[in-house]
């Protein structure tokens, strides 16, 4: 689990005070998502599987810094993303965390399951940066005009 510095570039949004936890077993995918989400003003942290993510959430809660957003892959070792969502949704203190799955699982049945388990949104890999930004706009985490 690593703390990622915010990427700096002229087009990046200023920090918004929001934070995101990126959960994926691929370093490359975490890197891609981190750049997209940091570019939208989020501070980011990463986890390589569901159990690491839970550990991070516990630690963050203890210091009063629960993330606003979790991006969650489905297929991961140790604990997969679906299980992670069910675990997160058991905890009232994490009720306001927005959960967005980012995964190759694209069968309709899988999407239905994830939404029923408590995922708020769902992005199918492959995706473009705009797709993530638009979903976050739908969720109200990113304000209009960011994409213009």
């Amino acid at each position: 689990m690593t703390q990622s510095p915010m990427d700096q570039s002229p087009t990046d949004q200023r920090p918004t005070g929001q934070s995101a936890l990126i959960v994926d077993d691929s370093k490359a995918m975490r890197s891609i998502l981190r750049r997209i989400v940091a570019g939208l003003g989020f501070e980011t942290t990463e986890a390589g599987h569901g159990q690491e993510a839970l550990d991070h959430l516990e630690a963050a809660t203890a210091i009063g810094r629960v993330p606003d957003l979790c991006l969650i892959d489905w297929n991961m070792p140790v604990m997969d993303g679906y299980t992670l969502i069910t675990e997160i949704r058991k905890r009232p203190e994490w009720r306001n965390v927005t959960l967005m799955m980012v995964t190759t699982e694209s069968e309709q049945g899988q999407i239905v399951r994830a939404l029923a388990a408590g995922a708020h949104e769902y992005v199918i890999k492959p995706f473009t940066p705009d797709a993530i930004a638009e979903k976050l706009e739908l969720l109200g985490l990113v304000s209009k005009g960011v994409l213009a």
Partner: peptide, 10 residues
């Protein structure tokens, strides 16, 4: 290959 394979699976 995870992305390509995952989509073939579906």
């Amino acid at each position: 290959v995870n992305m390509v394979g995952g989509n073939v699976k579906s």
